[in-house]
């Protein structure tokens, strides 16, 4: 673990050095491309500003993630529980993914306003489908042996759903949640770009217009750190929640003995 952190730190330092070198040697003015030192100084200088906007974006992301997961899971359960729902809803659901969600952003801002609601809606829309698709897939692919066993035990259909199909589908839902966590910030920031009064996306747009490129980079830095932090937390939580799930890469040794 320590070695892994050390390795990626060295890679990062290397990339930053190249970046600083390019800026220094080419003499690019800071309003086109600020050096990493300048970005860092700006980030420290403007920490209050960045924190205020980051809080807004983080709230949007978390609300979108929660809402998208909730609606996505319920949709998957509805699709499994009722064949009618499958017939009427599934084709529409799949076709809806042909509509680029980003194209809806201006509409969402028009309908829901410049506040947080339109960004939460945007993030929810982006998250909804991966969650539904993966959870629905997981619910469909229950081991037929378990279902046979349940039938031989005269199981109640709802008990089968709750005690067998649902837990069996949780690893699939977890994959969907990981994807959702990675794309949720995109939804929130795109929403902010289209029209907003606060948030990191708003700050970036604002800084861009005033050629405060260093602020833009600082905002980007904060957004990236937030996304990585969120992903790491969700990933760790999912692992802890599914301890029975085999979760490791095959080591080269075990691969070799399999041959």
């Amino acid at each position: 673990m320590l070695v892994a952190i050390l390795r990626s730190s060295i890679t990062l330092v290397g990339l930053l050095t190249i970046w600083a070198g390019i800026v220094h040697l080419s003499g690019t003015p800071p309003y086109i491309l600020p050096g990493p030192d300048r970005v860092l100084i700006t980030a420290i200088d403007q920490v209050d500003l960045l924190a205020r906007h980051a809080m807004v974006t983080a709230t949007e992301i978390l609300l979108g993630l929660g809402l998208g997961t909730l609606i996505g899971s319920l949709a998957a359960l509805a699709l499994i529980a009722a064949p009618e729902m499958r017939r009427w809803l599934l084709p529409v659901l799949v076709a809806s993914q042909a509509v680029p969600v980003f194209a809806l952003a201006p509409l969402l801002v028009l309908w829901l306003g410049y506040g947080m609601a339109s960004k939460v809606a945007m993030a929810t829309l982006i998250i909804f489908f991966p969650v539904t698709a993966s959870f629905y897939d997981g619910l469909r692919r229950t081991d037929p042996g378990w279902l046979d066993l349940a039938r031989a035990m005269n199981a109640h259909p709802l008990a089968v759903l709750w005690h067998i199909r649902l837990p069996a589908a949780l690893p699939a839902l977890a994959s969907g949640l990981r994807v959702a966590t990675a794309v949720a910030p995109i939804g929130a920031v795109v929403g902010e770009w289209v029209g907003s009064s606060a948030g990191l996306g708003h700050l970036m747009l604002h800084a861009n217009a005033r050629l405060q490129t260093d602020v833009m980079f600082a905002a980007l830095l904060v957004l990236a750190a937030m996304t990585i932090g969120l992903y790491t937390a969700v990933d760790a939580a999912l692992r802890a929640a599914l301890p029975w799930q085999p979760d490791h890469f095959p080591s080269p040794q075990s691969e070799a003995t399999k041959e």
């Binding site: 081991d143 042996g145 378990w146 046979d148 066993l149 349940a150 031989a152 035990m153 005269n154 199981a155 109640h156 008990a159 089968v160 005690h163 067998i164 837990p167 069996a168 949780l170 599914l242 029975w244 799930q245």
Partner: peptide, 25 residues
Amino acid sequence: YMAQQDLLLPWLSVLDNVCLGPRLR
């Protein structure tokens, strides 16, 4: 019914697997 695979549910303890019937009914 007993199959070739043990069909134990991996998220339940061994004891809970043994007592699965009433839970499912």
